[in-house]
Amino acid sequence: MTAESITIRRLKEAFGSHIRETHAYRGDDTVVIDREALVNVATLLKQDADLEYSFLIDITAVDYLKTDKAPRFEVVYHFFSLPHKQRVRIKVPLAADDLEIDSLVPLWPGANWYEREVYDMFGVRFRGHPNLKRILLYEEFEGHPLRKDYPYNKRQPIVKPGGNI
């Protein structure tokens, strides 16, 4: 592996014990952190003069049920720094029985909808989110379709007009 990027080095210096793993597979800087550190890591990424990750590009999650990876879920954040032309991926593992993580809405208002989507599709709850409800699906929908144990063609009854839509 080539030399570590400045982002990974800076995060290691600041949060050594909370960093579980780092890699740069195919050139994508990736840092796996404990969920307690998420807000602090994000704040550092946003404010540090050498990093300046002002864009929260994306939030998503992965369900690792069908692999031997533990814990089962991972919430994935992508950040982009305009002045340094850098990207970084932050991953936070979450156990299936404790699907809660801090919301990033106070730092980036754009996180609002992304987090709602992750909640809708995976059932991850975001602490401190102002309006955590389904976004792509409807309230009557049961379950979280992107979990690996939800069959792709399991249909649910169509809501009658006048329902809560």
């Binding site: 590009i57 994306d58 998503t60 992965v62 692999t67 994935v76 208002p109 754009g110 909808w113 992304y114």
Partner: peptide
């Protein structure tokens, strides 16, 4: 195993 799309419209609509 997983494909996620970061759609440009999504943040625009959020705002």
């Amino acid at each position: 195993y997983r494909v996620h799309v970061r759609a440009p419209c999504f943040p625009l609509m959020a705002a």
